[in-house]
Design a binder for these strands. Structure first.
Lengths: 195, 195
DNA sequence: CCTACCGATCGGTAGG
DNA sequence: CCTACCGATCGGTAGG
């Protein structure tokens, strides 16, 4: 038991240090020897805990993907009265996942393309499915008169673009907490979508 | 003369193929042998035309940086009556640079961190300077009553985030031309910034 | 632009 | 978790 607990903890430790490394140098530029150095062990020893370098990337990418899904599942279940409310909550949920772990988000957004098949296809499909939720909010909002859009797809992209870029500049130690940033994004975007 | 012209053309060819490669696999995952294969020559032969792999990256990153600067310099010179107009023109200018060469934009946005010093510092300084232009538009717009912002810095980030993400999804062969996309972005963002 | 190579480093394995 | 290694591949050079 003691051993099992230790082993799990070490595996998580590897994931965390690897996330930091991938964030800093990128996946392919990060070597297992770099990672071993950060952990204070030999490169070969890492393979007692994981099968391959890519396994770490898979873990990070799909953990983040699941966190995004979990965050909007809450909103889907509640189903608010207005699409404006659904969108506001979704913006906050999405942004919260990013700001909670910027480094993992960076790996999620930038390093996923180094996944091999079939993981790569599974990953891109998950992202398409996820985007669909934002699409459906806007479509319902247009239908019921809440939103006036030049183009639904471009509007979805505006929203997600603005949100996704935040891992690059958001400072968790800075002046603004996630709620304030979400509020500001919602304000700008919703005013734009409504008229 | 003939030889000089040929040499320049070959160098540009290397840059173009490398851009494609870096876009597809990322800078560090792209090998000079990959690049040589695309060019139909041996890896060693590339070094007749360039000094190092990083030199190619530098060329692409700074060429794009200059294109962004050139695009807004036009606007700075003209200085339109309203900040709304300045912002609209800047949005179109910025977006045009991206959509004109998505692959080079992708390298510009993602691979710049593999630049070595002093290039890295020079690059990040250029980006800060560039962002400053958008900042100044919003600040003047707030001062003269055109814009009402919760927060200037966050608003700049909203704009640039939305625009910068476009290299990932914009399809030059698709339904929308750059002007339409810029129009849609301007519409959403400006309505949000004005109220 | 090629052949022939260099030293370094890569991800990963064997065996303990 | 270590030592000792593997074959492969890396960016780049010498010399033509």
């Amino acid at each position: 038991m003691q051993q099992a607990a230790k082993s799990i903890s070490r595996k998580k430790q590897i994931e965390l240090k690897a996330t930091e490394l991938f964030w800093q140098k990128g996946y392919t530029a990060s070597s297992m020897r770099d990672l071993a150095n950060l952990l204070g062990i030999e490169a070969a020893s890492i393979y007692s805990h994981i099968k391959s370098k890519e396994e770490i990337l898979q873990t990070v990418c799909f953990r983040m993907a699941n966190e995004f899904f979990d965050a909007i599942d809450e909103i889907k279940k509640n189903s608010y009265d207005t699409e404006e409310e659904n969108l506001k909550k979704s913006i906050l949920a999405h942004l919260s996942v990013i700001t909670k772990d910027k480094k993992a988000s960076s790996v999620f957004f930038n390093e996923w393309r180094h996944l091999s098949e079939p993981h790569l296809t599974r990953f891109t499909n998950m992202r398409k499915t996820y985007e669909q939720w934002f699409n459906s909010i806007l479509e319902r909002g247009v239908k019921n008169g809440e939103f006036k859009l030049m183009n639904t797809k471009l509007s979805v992209m505006s929203i997600l673009s603005a949100l996704n870029w935040s891992y690059r500049w958001y400072d968790p130690q800075g002046k603004y907490d996630t709620e304030e940033v979400a509020e500001n994004f919602s304000h700008i975007l919703l005013n734009g979508l409504k008229s």
